[in-house]
């Protein structure tokens, strides 16, 4: 299991290849990648991602450990970036490996649902004319109920 919080970009292909290598007991690897989406008006310049150093790593580790246990995963990976990103940039990724795909898919969704509202990150969308903090959605909180 690996949790990385970094401002540098990551190489999605290389990460997935490394993650998928040497997993003798796993028949399934699922990955999810989060991308900076443009605002509705189409003029996003920067997405600034703030986080709480220390708590971020602890929270992500706790969430990943829970996923490892609940779905008997062979491995799990979470990479989340912070700092200034542009439209189309990769923000984060999760990867899960399990014997069967159902567990790998479910664990990846669990990781995503939890890190959306339980990992201390905050996003700010900056355009030429505005700078707005992205508000948390009620749906995101409600998504935790199914776990």
């Amino acid at each position: 299991m690996r949790v990385l919080v970094q401002d540098a970009p990551f190489d999605l292909g290389a990460e997935v290849t490394e993650f998928s290598t040497g997993l003798d007991n796993a028949g399934a690897v699922v990955t999810f990648t989060g991308i900076v989406r443009d605002v509705a008006s189409g003029d996003l310049q920067v997405m600034e991602i703030e986080h709480y150093p220390g708590m971020t790593e602890a929270a992500l580790t706790k969430i990943a450990q829970e996923a490892m246990q609940r779905w008997s995963l062979a491995d799990a990976l979470v990479i989340h970036r912070h700092g200034r990103l542009g439209p189309g940039d990769q923000i984060m990724m999760v990867a899960t490996a399990a014997r069967h795909r159902k567990d790998a898919f479910e664990a990846a969704e669990f990781l995503m649902d939890y890190l959306k509202s339980r990992a201390p990150f905050w996003k700010k969308e900056i355009t030429k004319d505005s700078a707005d903090w992205v508000a948390a959605k009620d749906d995101d909180e409600a998504a935790l109920d199914r776990w």
């Binding site: 709480y52 708590m55 984060m92 959306k116 990150f121 903090w133 992205v134 948390a136």
Partner: peptide
């Protein structure tokens, strides 16, 4: 002790 708005990770 830290104060912040609801988190928006992912």
């Amino acid at each position: 002790i830290a104060f912040f708005p609801p988190m928006t990770g992912g």
